[in-house]
Design a binder for these strands. Sequence first.
DNA 1: CTAGTTTTCGACTCTCAGTCGGAAACAGGT
DNA 2: ACCTGTTTCCGACTGAGAGTCGAAAACTAG
Lengths: 239, 239
Amino acid sequence: MARPTEHEVLAAVLQIRCGSLQVLAWQRALPPDSGRWSLPGGLLGDDEDVEQSVRRQLAEKVDLGEVTHVEQLGVFSRPDRVPDVRRVATAFLGLVPSDADPAVPPDTQWHPLAALPPTAFDHAAIVADAHDRLRAKLSYTNLGFALAPREFTISALRDLYVAALGHPVSATNLQRVLTRRQVLEPTGAVAPPGPAGGRPAALFRFTDHVLRVTDAFAVLRPPTGPPSGPGEATRVVVP
Amino acid sequence: MARPTEHEVLAAVLQIRCGSLQVLAWQRALPPDSGRWSLPGGLLGDDEDVEQSVRRQLAEKVDLGEVTHVEQLGVFSRPDRVPDVRRVATAFLGLVPSDADPAVPPDTQWHPLAALPPTAFDHAAIVADAHDRLRAKLSYTNLGFALAPREFTISALRDLYVAALGHPVSATNLQRVLTRRQVLEPTGAVAPPGPAGGRPAALFRFTDHVLRVTDAFAVLRPPTGPPSGPGEATRVVVP
DNA sequence: CTAGTTTTCGACTCTCAGTCGGAAACAGGT
DNA sequence: ACCTGTTTCCGACTGAGAGTCGAAAACTAG
């Protein structure tokens, strides 16, 4: 009774280019939806899981070495999301550091999320989910490492956060908060000043390049031990 | 070349029963993995998406009216996760309020996550993912509404959080934090005291029963307007 | 040497989580 | 009627962290 079910993987690969958040897409030459822009991906192979598959398919469009983070977004499964066939998609978020400029095939281009051309199928919804996920995880994790170069100034990092979040961010707070949480650390080196002069900016790096949760809700936080600060150690009653 | 791909949905339905977090599972009578415990679910139908499918399949095991929240966890797709066939699974988290006691089929039982019997296939990993997701979302969202009865005392809510999070929670903080964030509101009524007496506890309810994010990372937070608190309004210079 | 630019750092304030202790409200026994 | 034990409620205090502001530092260009 069941018609055959295909399974595909799709990736919304995001990068901050020229100060705006952009997504990688290729223009379809053949129906269905020819002329519209499609996310990189393809059918799941027999001997791979979806994570392996999306990396394999992405390698056909960009240098995988430039993609610093890939994570699963979820399943898109509307019965009519693709015409004629039943095709379920697992969507992924991919991130590329802002200093990379990977070579892409001629049919493939970066597009600002703010001015997305007509997309194929339900790919616009996937891009929107990717954007939401990025905004959320920038909030309470160290995910910024996947968008930033290996070394950067606080101003440059602030610009990345502004582009990804879409609202102003205080550079002073960004530095203090991220260093206190040991997400950032200074490299000791400084960047040369810009053409207009100005004080040379100190360079920073992310302390680690694997995803970590750095903020925890209060009520969730396990109780702190006895205040080891100004208080004395555990009072011992001498018998 | 590709062997046929099946797609199934599976749900880890969690509820706090007798002070411990438990998951609904049914015991397999037939191979493969007969005798082991399996999560409710089944194959995706032709004319439904995964969300519709998991609700349909769940309705065969429990009264859907008792399940207050369902959300997608992700895809489990190891090629060998099920023997003989290629079957990709979309996993879900389901939540049941602690005061519900839905009727279940004879092969189906609740099991504490702390003492889970042998599970079929990769279902133990799905349960672990569900637990992690629940812990995380209790932290920065109002997801507690899906675990709690419609009305409850702060002590009862504290016990729910303790069971779900696995560490002590201060009732005073819980009340103050959740009310300040307008997640909770008092109903005005009070609960009768327990057998040992004691002051009657005030009853509370969740202000809304749809998922909301209530905590936001600092750097992410859009800039606050001018401090409208003790300060004066925007200083206007009279010309 | 001065003006302009950009970054950096310290000081202040306010919000909020975490803790503590006392008051309030009940049941049961003397 | 009173006291005791129990549970809940609510105030006050403390400390950490975020948001803001402004001045000092370090550079370029004229």
